[in-house]
Design a protein around this nucleic acid. Structure first.
Lengths: 124, 124
DNA sequence: ATACTTGCAAATGATTTGCCAGTGT
DNA sequence: ACACTGGCAAATCATTTGCAAGTAT
């Protein structure tokens, strides 16, 4: 499982891991994959993120957890360094007292491309 | 279904609507409830939010959609006026070009209570 | 022999779909 | 007669659990 996650380019669904990323790596049973992922998450080597509906996506924690942005229209997503969201976190903390984390559940919105794809109207 | 949503205090799972909020209102079949909710969402009267894992929660759009904050530790949540998140949205837009929306997927983090419950360490 | 890990199958929870009967126009 | 809505059962998708067989220590 670790080898497969290492070979993956980005976060992947458990099913893809079970399939060995489409046959390129040894396949295993989905149940074992979930069991291993659970263990690996518990020790902090792996984490998963929920991008919209659809299955959770798993990825290695190379240096630390990433946080995520995803587009609710086209489904695209990007990892961001947690530090890049510190200003956002500060604004949320100042307004509501919450300390936000976008590692497990991402920031959801419209990516620049989809903003223009719909008639670009709003400002700010 | 509308009547039930109107009687509900906050966002409720489809199952609670089907049960008539625990018997206080006429019960219906879960499938019908989902079908009606889908239609009501399509016409903009209702929206649902995904609070962490667990079922989606449905609520009326009284004056406009709310956006949500939820605590990943205690599961508590609160609705916020979208305007209150404009500063946050602006920070995200400035940094990444994304236009965030927290109506369907909330801001996830630690509420003030849970921050103290874990040894309050971090600042900002 | 004992502990850990797997594969496979069945269970769970949320949601969707198919279909048929009941109501309304 | 025809369109719409509801109930009920079965299907689907992601994930979990039980259990028996297999490998390792």
């Amino acid at each position: 499982v670790l080898e497969t996650l290492f070979a993956a380019e980005g976060p992947v669904p458990a099913e893809a891991i079970a399939a060995g990323l489409g046959g390129r790596l040894p396949a295993s049973d989905l149940a074992s994959v979930y069991r291993n992922l659970e263990t690996l998450e518990a020790v902090g080597l792996v984490s998963h993120v929920h991008l919209g509906h659809g299955p959770g996506l798993y990825a290695l924690n190379h240096d630390g957890e990433s946080e995520w942005l995803t587009c609710e229209r086209c489904g695209d997503f990007r990892a961001v360094d947690p530090a890049a969201l510190d200003e956002v976190r500060a604004a949320i903390h100042a307004a509501f007292g919450y300390r936000a984390c976008f590692a497990h559940f991402p920031v959801v919105g419209l990516c620049p491309g989809c903003q223009s794809a719909l008639g670009a109207s709003s400002s700010t």
